[in-house]
Amino acid sequence: MNAEQFWKLIESSRSGFDPDRIDGNMERQREELRRLLLRLPPEEILGFRNHLLERMATACHWDLWGAAYLIAGGCSDDGFTDFRSWLSSMGRGVFEAAMSDAESLVEAADAPGVEDVFFEEFQYVPAEAYEELTGQEPPEYAGPSPLEPAGERWNEDEGNLQRRFPRLWARYQQG
């Protein structure tokens, strides 16, 4: 599976997204992705899983953690993993915009129909589909899995979130 196919599957999984719903879009997307993956051979499901985990590794950046922290009013390390899962689930446009400028997430996080910025279940869909199709657990992922985020660390107590992310701070002001 290549990157184009990966992003196409993500977009297809969002095809029934309803901006008028205040909840249920995430569950609908999760189910649609599962349905789409079950149509693929097992090696393609693993390819999708690998692309997803690579995107999540790429998004392991202090700027994105700062954005998640401001948007949600706090964000643990586990929460940041779920945030990166959500970011990937939003599609290529949102993902690439956030990678270029974390403050672009002001629009994505507040878009109609977006119920949350933590989507833990999304990252598990490929493994669940693989197991459903093959009756076996998928092999371990051997790709990048950073222990520490890239970029310049921020500290909530030093006030640098306001300086680094003025648009996010203005929208989700902390205190």
Rank of each mutant, 00 (worst) to 15 (best):
S100P: 01
L33G: 00
A67Y: 02
D78S: 15
P126Y: 00
G16N: 14
E27Q: 13
C60N: 15
A150P: 04
A57Q: 04
L70M: 12
Y130T: 06
A97C: 08
S89C: 06
V94Q: 02
R92I: 06
L52K: 00
R34A: 10
S100C: 07
N155P: 03
F119R: 00
P138M: 13
L105A: 02
S85M: 00
L70A: 10
P41A: 10
C75R: 06
E27S: 13
E128A: 15
P42Y: 01
I71M: 08
R49N: 08
G66N: 08
H61D: 15
P126W: 00
A59P: 02
E121A: 12
E132R: 13
G135T: 06
S104K: 13
F83V: 05
N50H: 09
P144M: 07
A72N: 15
A129H: 02
P146R: 10
V106Q: 07
W154G: 00
P19A: 13
R92L: 10
L64W: 08
G93R: 14
D23V: 08
G47K: 01
F83W: 07
V106N: 12
F122C: 11
P138K: 11
V117F: 01
P126I: 01
F119L: 08
R21Y: 04
C75W: 09
R84I: 06
G24N: 09
Y69R: 04
Y69C: 04
L36M: 02
